[in-house]
Amino acid sequence: MKSTFYPANGRGTSDHGWLKANFSFSFAGYHNPDKVHFGALRVLNDDIIAGGTGFGTHPHDNMEIITIPLQGALEHKDSMGNIGVIHAGEVQVMSAGTGVEHSEYNHSKTEPANTLQIWLLPKFRNIAPRYDQRDFKNAFKKNEFTTLVTGDKNVDALWINQDATFSIGEFDAGQTIIYDIKNQGNGAYIFVLEGVVKINDQLLNKKDALGVIDTSSITIDSQANTRLLIIEVPMLQ
């Protein structure tokens, strides 16, 4: 097993007043040649959006876009005719495919929203654009992972155009957690949303991450009450 540590304080940052962003990988004005992507994982932005503000209509193509609100809610509108609100506990996926335009705004006029905006490079290019979202609040079980997103249509989760799996879980302190790689050859990007974990003697605190490759399973020891997001992706060059 090989691993790369991505400390929270090593992320790129941007402060536009209405938007405070942390970039795990090169994005917009932040460029780090050592942090361009982790396999098919191209973007992981940890955004705090002020009340009454957001991203105006803008285009995407040939990218798999996953939105996970951690706090608050976002209003979504796109050129496919989808209009709605996505809350914390829900997940949104969008295959931009041949091209789509969308906007995202904080649903609250006064309270900030904290959202993870994640982009994956697609498995197949120029597919028809598609959109989906799901409420997972009743699916979560303590000390277990819940699959949110997958490229396997046989799994009860949101589908995307990539051989990837997104799993999230809340774990009590003192738990030993085994994560099994779903697709042979995939790597796993382990992102600590809350708490503290140890993986192969590497301690990870809140918003730290560890990229792991060349293994079929990962053992994670929770050092405190912890919430984890694992993004498993093909290790594209």
Rank of each mutant, 00 (worst) to 15 (best):
S3I: 11
P7I: 07
A8P: 12
A8I: 12
R11C: 05
T13R: 12
D15C: 03
H16F: 00
L19Y: 04
A21G: 08
A21P: 01
A21M: 09
N22T: 11
S24H: 00
F25E: 09
S26V: 09
S26P: 14
F27T: 04
F27H: 11
F27A: 01
H31V: 04
H31F: 06
D34I: 01
D34L: 12
D34Y: 04
K35I: 12
K35Q: 10
V36D: 08
V36K: 01
H37T: 09
F38M: 10
F38L: 15
F38N: 10
G39E: 06
L41G: 11
R42K: 14
R42F: 07
L44T: 04
L44E: 12
D46H: 09
G51R: 02
G52V: 02
T53M: 10
G54P: 13
P59N: 13
H60P: 15
H60W: 09
M63N: 02
I66S: 11
P69R: 06
L74T: 14
E75F: 06
D78Q: 02
D78W: 08
S79M: 02
S79I: 11
N82I: 11
I83H: 03
H87V: 04
V93H: 01
S95N: 13
S95E: 08
S95F: 08
A96E: 02
A96P: 09
G97S: 09
G99C: 07
E101Q: 10
E101R: 08
H102N: 13
H102G: 12
E104Q: 05
Y105M: 04
N106K: 01
A113Q: 05
A113H: 12
N114S: 14
N114G: 03
T115Y: 08
L120S: 04
L121D: 13
R125G: 07
N126K: 12
Y131L: 07
D132Y: 09
D135F: 06
N138R: 05
A139S: 11
E144N: 11
V149N: 13
V149Q: 14
G151A: 00
D152H: 03
V155D: 12
L158A: 10
L158M: 08
W159F: 14
W159I: 03
N161D: 12
N161C: 07
T165F: 08
S167Y: 08
F171A: 11
A173D: 03
G174C: 02
Q175E: 03
T176C: 07
I177T: 08
I177L: 03
I178A: 03
K182E: 14
K182F: 05
A188H: 02
A188V: 14
I190E: 09
G195L: 00
V196K: 00
V197I: 15
I199A: 00
N200W: 00
D201H: 15
Q202S: 05
Q202I: 11
L203E: 10
L203I: 15
L204C: 06
N205S: 07
L210W: 04
L210A: 14
L210S: 14
S217I: 03
S222D: 01
S222A: 05
Q223D: 09
Q223T: 04
T226Y: 05
I231D: 02
I231A: 05
E232M: 10
V233Y: 14
P234R: 06
P234A: 04
M235L: 04
M235S: 10
L236E: 06
L236D: 01
L236V: 15
Q237T: 10
